[in-house]
Amino acid sequence: MKPRFEGRVALVTGGGTGIGAAAAARLRDEGALVYVLGRREAPLDAVAKATGAIALPADAADPAAVRNALARIVERHDRLDVVVANAGGFGIGAVADTSDDDWRRACRANLDTAFVITREALPMLIESRGAIVIVSSIAGLAAGPEAAGYVTVKHALIGLTRSLARDYGRCGVRTNAICPGWVRTEMADDEMRTLMAARSIPTLDEAYALATRDVPLGRAADASEIASVIAFLASDDASAMNGAVVVADGGATIVDVPTLAFADPSPR
């Protein structure tokens, strides 16, 4: 079969690690010419070396930096077909414990990055009738404990997805969101280490097992599994999908929490 992205150009923000790096690898495997954008050069260079992607060091929340990065893409290829708005992080803490700086950092890292990159890329995407995939989270659907900034901005990303889909669908630009649950990434590993310290858990594997104890699949996803959903949403196979919010969480958000006390903890 012909690779789904042959001849197409894709840009992945937060492309140096985790889901972004996996998405870049998947899009490259399927024939795309991929640019990975992020603030840290070393991880971007590592992804570029491993996948054949092209590193674009820049802050996705900085309009001038994004315009410069997109100008490089236009100069080289005169097109852009796919944007994966994946940059994110920060926002841990309950409302009363969240400083103004922490709040602004969460908004900038998650929401501003997606807003700026999509706004600046829209003229190119309209021309190519391209696709946007915004990486939200199941934190965009429900609230976890003491993560007010992260929960709020991940909810906002779904609103951004729907606004883009509503306003630019008639221009041929499809915008969809993916909401992953626990995914084994460097960022999630750090959260697991916090859990390990709080519960005296000796290993990362055991911490992930506890965190996913009530997830129907009983495990965290691999970043490559999320990347496969991103590639689908960006491809022509999803040509009728616009404004969709696709959940990839192993079934976590279908669980009826008040009935957990009645659940048999043993695998069937």
Rank of each mutant, 00 (worst) to 15 (best):
L111C: 07
L157N: 07
A71R: 14
L122I: 00
N110Q: 10
A148R: 06
H155I: 10
L141R: 02
R129D: 00
I132C: 07
Y168F: 01
D78S: 13
A121T: 00
G172T: 03
M124V: 06
R76P: 07
R105W: 13
L160D: 07
L164Q: 04
V133I: 09
M124Q: 14
G172W: 05
A106F: 11
G172E: 09
S99F: 05
A94C: 02
F90P: 05
M124I: 07
F90Y: 15
L141A: 08
A143Y: 08
H77V: 08
T118C: 10
L141Q: 03
R108M: 13
G89V: 10
V74S: 12
A106V: 11
L164D: 00
V133E: 04
I158G: 08
P123M: 02
R108V: 15
F90H: 15
D101V: 11
G89Y: 09
D102T: 08
A114E: 08
A109K: 12
S128D: 07
G91I: 05
R170Q: 12
L141Y: 00
D101N: 13
R129M: 03
I92L: 12
R162I: 00
G159Y: 07
R170M: 10
R105V: 11
D81N: 02
G130A: 01
Y168V: 02
V95Q: 01
Y150R: 04
V116R: 03
M124C: 09
G140S: 06
A96F: 10
D81S: 12
T98G: 11
D101T: 15
A147P: 01
S128E: 07
N86L: 01
L164G: 00
G130I: 04
L122M: 02
A96S: 06
Y150P: 09
C171N: 14
I117T: 13
D101R: 15
K154R: 01
C171W: 10
T161A: 03
L80W: 12
G144V: 11
D78K: 12
N110R: 15
T152K: 11
N86M: 02
A165E: 00
R72S: 10
N86D: 06
V83T: 02
I73W: 06
D78G: 13
I134A: 04
I132A: 00
R166P: 06
V116I: 06
S136A: 15
G130N: 01
D112N: 13
S136E: 07
A156L: 07
G130Q: 02
D81Q: 01
R162F: 09
L80K: 08
V74C: 05
C171K: 14
R105I: 11
V84L: 03
A147H: 11
G130K: 05
V116D: 00
V151G: 05
L125F: 04
R79T: 14
V116M: 03
T98Y: 04
I126E: 15
I73E: 01
E120P: 01
E75L: 11
A148V: 03
R105P: 09
S128Y: 00
G169K: 04
I73P: 08
I117P: 06
